[in-house]
Each structure stands twice: as C-alpha cells, then as structure tokens.
C-alpha cells in the first residue's frame, strides 16, 4: 500500500514538474511541491493507519461555549 502511494506521487512529479521547469515557473514549483509534500505525508500516515485527532471536539467545545 505504501509503495503504491510512493509510486503514485513519483508519477505525478514526473508528469507535472518538467513542464513547470521548462516554463521557469520557480514560485509555482515551490507551492506545487509544498502542497504535494503535505498530501504525501497525509497519504503515508493514512496508509499506515495513523489517526489524526478529530476537529469535531474543538468545534463542539466552541459551539457549546457560544450557545451558553
């Protein structure tokens, strides 16, 4: 599963990055790689079965605080 994720991301980099380098879009390249890096970390964690703390707990506390 993890190797599949790594292969997918390598494929995406191989397709998208040469075009960006050819057009000399350096700022765009940085943002692209940054977003891809966050997505990569999240996908790897997902494939490993890691669980993030849920956002709902925070929202619940906030809403109950406001409504009271």
């Amino acid at each position: 599963m993890i190797s599949l994720v790594i292969l997918t991301f390598l494929g995406i980099i191989a397709i998208e990055v040469p075009g960006l380098i050819r057009k000399k879009y350096w700022k765009e390249l940085i943002v692209f790689l940054l977003l891809l890096f966050i997505a990569f970390i999240a996908s790897i964690l997902l494939a490993m079965g890691f669980e993030f703390p849920s956002l709902i707990k925070g929202i619940e506390i906030l809403i109950k605080y406001i409504l009271r």
Binding site: I12, E28, L35, L36, A42, S43, L46, F52
Partner: peptide, 16 residues
C-alpha cells in the same frame, strides 16, 4: 498545475 496536489490533499483530508 495546482489541480492534482489539491485533489490529493482533499482525498487525504476527507478520509481523515
């Protein structure tokens, strides 16, 4: 060029 990373991020976040 942002479409693919954004969609990947959305897939991961929607599952999380």
């Amino acid at each position: 060029f942002l479409i693919v990373p954004e969609n990947l991020l959305a897939i991961a976040y929607s599952l999380f």
